[in-house]
Each structure stands twice: as structure tokens, then as C-alpha cells.
């Protein structure tokens, strides 16, 4: 039986969600040798405005390249949580940036409130790398892609000279995921 795993990364333009989606897809498809598609939806603005990036990962051909029943949603703004949390499948995972998503209404999903941007700002030194911190969290709490594959995909995709900063951001995300598992906020992912 083949699997289909759907991820939606949502927030606003300029947060690097399209890049994060592309990295996630490359990690799965090139380094983990699965199949993956990545697509995006955004407005005409260069910055600001709702932005979402979707990644479908499967071990089979991917017929429809957009999300239908979301396994994992990342919401970096209140608006994106409000709009998309209802598209998450029962038992799915919703990660919100708790600094900005003040009203994360619980639903039929596992809700994780994590200060994603704050971690990026305070521990990595740049709020800009919140997207990579988020990838670290996703790698830690789901086993949909391997840590190693993500690390290689990040290295291949981020601008030259920022590898160290991005690796650090990725590690911060992984550490946060380990803390969530240790504190039993979320269970250790199965294979």
C-alpha cells in the first residue's frame, strides 16, 4: 500500500515558505529517493499577503500535486491558522508560531504551539531563518524525511555563505522537536 503525506507551510510572503517547501521536496525526492511535488499559492505582492507552499510526498506517482487532506500544517500567522486548520485531516499535526497565533482554536488535530520565529531570532540570531527552524521541527516530529536528507537539501539550496546559519537553525528545530518528544507533548514518530 503506497502512502501520500501532505504538508502545507503557510504564513505571509517573505517568510521563505516557498523555499522551505522546495527544500523539503528535494530532501524527500532526491536524497531520500521518494517522490515529491511542491507548489505554492501567493498574491501579487513581493512581501506580505497570504502565502502558502505545499509539499506532497509519496512512494508512488503523485496524481494531484496539491493538498487535499493535510497531514501537517505549519501556520506562521493567525490568518493562515484560521483559513487552513479546517483542511487538516483528523489526527493530523498543526504547528503554530505561538508568538503571533494568539487564538489557536483546538480541533480534531494535534496542536503544537511553538515560538518558531522567537527561536530563530534568539537562538540562531536571525528571525529570517524561522523557515529552516520549522523544517528542523518537522524533521524531528515526523519521520517523513530523514534528517540527513534535509541537511543535504538545505546545504544545496540556501545562498552561499549562509550554510552555517541555516545548519544552526535546522539544529535548533531538531532540538525543539526532541524537547517536545521528551516532555511527551508529542509522541516519538514511528517509521
Amino acid at each position: 500500500m503506497s502512502f501520500r503525506y501532505e504538508v502545507r507551510l503557510s504564513g505571509e510572503g517573505g517568510q521563505g515558505l516557498v523555499l522551505a517547501g522546495k527544500i523539503l521536496a528535494e530532501a524527500a525526492a532526491i536524497y531520500d529517493n521518494l517522490n515529491a511535488t511542491q507548489s505554492q499559492s501567493y498574491g501579487p505582492e513581493a512581501r506580505g499577503g497570504a502565502s502558502r507552499s505545499e509539499v506532497i510526498i509519496s512512494d508512488d506517482d503523485i496524481d494531484y500535486p496539491k493538498a487535499v487532506n493535510i497531514d501537517l500544517l505549519l501556520a506562521l500567522t493567525q490568518e493562515s491558522f484560521d483559513r487552513y486548520s479546517t483542511d487538516v485531516k483528523p489526527g493530523g499535526i498543526v504547528i503554530v508560531d505561538e508568538e503571533v497565533v494568539k487564538q489557536a482554536v483546538p480541533g480534531n488535530f494535534r496542536l503544537l504551539k511553538i515560538p518558531v520565529t522567537q527561536l530563530a531570532r534568539e537562538k540562531a540570531g536571525r528571525a529570517l531563518v524561522a523557515n529552516i527552524v520549522a523544517l528542523g521541527i518537522i524533521a524531528g516530529i515526523s519521520k517523513i524525511v530523514s534528517e540527513n536528507a534535509l541537511k543535504m537539501a538545505i546545504g544545496a539550496r540556501v545562498p552561499r555563505g549562509t550554510e552555517e546559519l541555516n545548519n544552526k537553525a535546522f539544529q535548533i528545530g531538531l532540538d525543539e522537536a526532541r524537547r517536545l518528544i521528551k516532555d511527551k507533548i508529542i509522541e516519538k514518530p514511528g517509521k
Binding site: 521536496a25 525526492a29 517522490n35 515529491a36 511535488t37 511542491q38 507548489s39 500535486p65
Partner: peptide, 9 residues
């Protein structure tokens, strides 16, 4: 737009 912008393996 979907086919133009979708990234696939």
C-alpha cells in the same frame, strides 16, 4: 499556472 509553477521530480 499550476503546471508552470509546480515543482516535480
Amino acid at each position: 499556472e499550476i503546471i508552470g509553477h509546480v515543482n516535480e521530480k
